[in-house]
Measured scan of single mutants.
Amino acid sequence: MATDAALRRLLRLHRTEIAVAVDSAFPLLHALADHDVVPEDKFQETLHLKEKEGCPQAFHALLSWLLTQDSTAILDFWRVLFKDYNLERYGRLQPILDSFPKDVDLSQPRKGRKPPAVPKALVPPPRLPTKRKASEEARAAAPAALTPRGTASPGSQLKAKPPKKPESSAEQQRLPLGNGIQTMSASVQRAVAMSSGDVPGARGAVEGILIQQVFESGGSKKCIQVGGEFYTPSKFEDSGSGKNKARSSSGPKPLVRAKGAQGAAPGGGEARLGQQGSVPAPLALPSDPQLHQKNEDECAVCRDGGELICCDGCPRAFHLACLSPPLREIPSGTWRCSSCLQATVQEVQPRAEEPRPQEPPVETPLPPGLRSAGEEVRGPPGEPLAGMDTTLVYKHLPAPPSAAPLPGLDSSALHPLLCVGPEGQQNLAPGARCGVCGDGTDVLRCTHCAAAFHWRCHFPAGTSRPGTGLRCRSCSGDVTPAPVEGVLAPSPARLAPGPAKDDTASHEPALH
């Protein structure tokens, strides 16, 4: 009773807030009518008042009428009001819900409408889902798969039609296919003929059939049928067999079959498995989609049935006599038709004709302190090069084509190399640097090759510096006499390219 009084008091307290929050009759008014909170006449009256005075006034009048009803109607109103779709449509209802007392429970059932309790003993237990329907569909599909699609060729003596089998029958139906081979029951999904010589313990000319048996419980189990008994694959494991010639990621696949039913060829011909030897223990289905393919039931050349050999690369099948050149017997292992072999060759040939990528240039590290003349020119003028003790990398590039010797140069053309002071002394051009340390401070000019250098860098042994005729380390061993002091540049003949010694390969005349 306390809860009923509290709900009535809360409705009177929030009546105006609810009326202002509800700006549309749908969905709240319609939901109240659906849950029998508002009768039909009051529903029509509220809609009429909404058209006349507006939605807030109409709902305020409806809530005032609701306060005169019993506690069950008020409880049902609060339940409908706080439904998710009403809270989404009328956003101003959320503060009312947040301020609702926590001790007021809106989930209690309506009085007088409590459903009768059902004894637990009368409640049926839930049924577990079964796979009976899938099993029945598999039974119905198996006879259809064994139905012949056409008439065999005159040369083929193997013609068999499976008798119709009602689904209610649980007995196995067997077809006489000759040579002791028996087909599987209607619940078998796949059958492959297997030679009895590969099964340990088999006697006589009995041949087993590799099947997948579907049981009534819905589970499946792969086994071997020899005669009327089934054997699990673990009985046929043979770890010492060295003649297993397995197909790549293979499961067994029928390579020879008669049109209309699988079996042995007439005249004692023995149908073979995809792999010879003992049956392997793992009978998992292969991951290669080509091995799941269903080959055609007629020859791809003459479009006739009979004894066919199936290609492992495509769905086509052929007569042995229709092949070019014809085959006398079934080859062992994987067999592919000429079209598949030709496609494989065409895929391999473009790969062989692809040009080989060019090898990157060989990189040879230079000892610290040495650099090529090109690196000396590329440096920024007026700045010493940083990191001189790091190992430089010199790339061996292809030799350029031989060019004509340089033409003779006048001494005026070499004027930018040297600057003559007032006393006739050779001065260095701006930006000249030593080729060893890279520093341009207090550098000297070689009178023979006009290269800038430090005496301490080229002659670290402490050799005394002569007063005139300074030469760098590369030119100090040259027998050519030094030019007379005061000459602007060496003779043009000295600039012609010539053979250089091994220790002077990195010091070429550089223009500054």
Rank of each mutant, 00 (worst) to 15 (best):
Lys131Glu: 02
Phe43Ile: 01
Gly240Ile: 05
Ala73Thr: 10
Ala202Cys: 14
Phe82Trp: 00
Ala202Leu: 09
Glu229Val: 02
Leu67Ser: 01
Lys52Glu: 10
Ser249Tyr: 09
Ser220Asp: 04
Ser220Arg: 11
Phe100Leu: 02
Gly197Glu: 02
Phe230Ser: 04
Val226Asn: 01
Ser220Gln: 00
Ser71Ile: 05
His60Pro: 00
Gln212Glu: 04
Ala138Val: 11
Pro252His: 05
Val206Gln: 02
Leu146Lys: 09
Ser187Phe: 01
Lys161Val: 11
Ala25Lys: 04
Gln94Thr: 04
Gly219Leu: 12
Ser248Phe: 11
Gln189Leu: 03
Lys243Pro: 09
Asn86Ser: 02
Lys42Gly: 00
Ser241Cys: 11
Leu67Gly: 01
Leu29Asn: 02
Pro176Leu: 15
Tyr85Phe: 06
Leu87Glu: 15
Pro95Lys: 03
Gly201Met: 15
Ala21Gln: 01
Ser195Met: 03
Thr72Asn: 12
Ser241Asp: 12
Phe215Met: 02
His35Phe: 02
Leu87Trp: 00
Leu63Glu: 00
Arg174Leu: 04
Leu66Asn: 00
Phe215Val: 03
Lys120Leu: 12
Leu32Ala: 00
Tyr231Cys: 05
Met184Phe: 06
Lys83Gln: 05
Val20Glu: 00
Leu146Tyr: 13
Pro95Tyr: 15
Gly91Met: 10
Ala58Glu: 01
Phe82Gly: 04
Glu137His: 04
Pro163Val: 04
Lys161Thr: 08
Gly227Leu: 04
Leu13Asp: 00
Lys243Tyr: 00
Ser153Thr: 07
Gln225Arg: 09
Val192Gln: 07
Phe77Asn: 00
Ala61Glu: 05
Phe230Cys: 05
Thr72Arg: 02
Ile96Glu: 02
Lys133Trp: 01
Asp36Arg: 05
Val206Tyr: 09
Ala5Cys: 12
Gly150Pro: 08
Lys131Phe: 02
Ala121Trp: 15
Arg12Gly: 04
Ala205Asn: 06
Lys83Leu: 07
Arg272Phe: 11
Gln225Thr: 06
Pro124Ser: 11
Thr151Gly: 14
Gly208Asn: 01
Ala142Gln: 01
Lys102His: 00
Ser196Val: 13
Lys133Val: 01
Pro163Thr: 09
Ala271Lys: 11
Leu81Cys: 07
Ser64Val: 01
Pro56Phe: 09
Val199Trp: 05
Ala205Ser: 11
Lys259Thr: 09
Tyr90Arg: 02
Leu158Lys: 02
Leu10Asp: 04
Asp4Glu: 13
Tyr90Asn: 02
Gly219Asn: 05
Arg92Tyr: 00
Glu167Ile: 13
Val118Met: 14
Ile181Ser: 08
Pro252Leu: 12
Leu175Ile: 06
Phe26Asp: 01
Ala246Ile: 04
Pro200Ala: 06
Leu175Phe: 12
Gly268Ser: 11
Lys222Pro: 08
Lys235Tyr: 10
Arg139Met: 10
Lys245Asp: 02
Pro95Val: 11
Asp34Phe: 03
Pro154His: 03
Arg203Glu: 01
Phe26Ile: 00
Gly219Ser: 07
Gly251Arg: 05
Leu255Arg: 04
Gly91Trp: 15
Leu177Val: 07
Lys222Trp: 01
Leu13Val: 05
Phe82Cys: 00
Val37Cys: 00
Gly150Asn: 02
Leu146Asn: 03
Pro252Asp: 08
Leu67Met: 05
Arg203Thr: 06
Tyr231His: 06
Pro126Arg: 01
Ala193Glu: 04
Trp65His: 05
Ala138Gly: 09
Ala160Val: 14
Val188Gly: 04
Glu40Gly: 01
Pro116Cys: 14
Leu87Ile: 15
Leu29Gln: 03
Glu88Ser: 04
Ala61Tyr: 01
Gly204Val: 02
His35Thr: 01
Ala170His: 15
Pro116Leu: 11
Asp36Val: 00
Asp76Cys: 04
Lys114Ser: 07
Thr183Tyr: 01
Ala138Gln: 03
Leu128Asp: 01
Ser135Val: 09
Lys161Ile: 13
Thr46Asn: 00
Glu237Val: 12
Ala271Arg: 06
Gln213Thr: 09
Trp78Glu: 05
Glu270Arg: 06
Lys52Gly: 04
Pro254Phe: 03
Glu136Met: 04
Asp76Tyr: 03
Pro125Lys: 08
Lys221Asn: 10
Pro101Met: 02
Phe26Asn: 03
Ser234Phe: 14
Asp84Thr: 06
Ala6Ile: 04
Gln57Val: 06
Leu177Asn: 05
Asp238Ile: 13
Glu40Ile: 02
Pro119Val: 08
Gln172Glu: 03
Asp23Gln: 00
Cys223Leu: 08
Leu128Glu: 02
Ala142Glu: 12
Ser153Gly: 13
Leu255Ala: 08
Arg272Tyr: 06
Gln213Gly: 09
Ala138Ser: 08
Glu88Leu: 08
Gly251Asp: 13
Lys114Trp: 14
Pro154Leu: 14
Ala117Phe: 10
Gln94Pro: 02
Ser71Asn: 03
Lys159Tyr: 14
Gln69Asn: 00
Gly201Arg: 08
Ile224Gly: 03
Lys114Gly: 04
Gly227Ile: 01
Arg127Asn: 11
Tyr85Lys: 00
Glu40Tyr: 00
Glu171Ala: 15
Lys159His: 12
Arg139Gln: 14
Asp34Glu: 00
Leu128His: 08
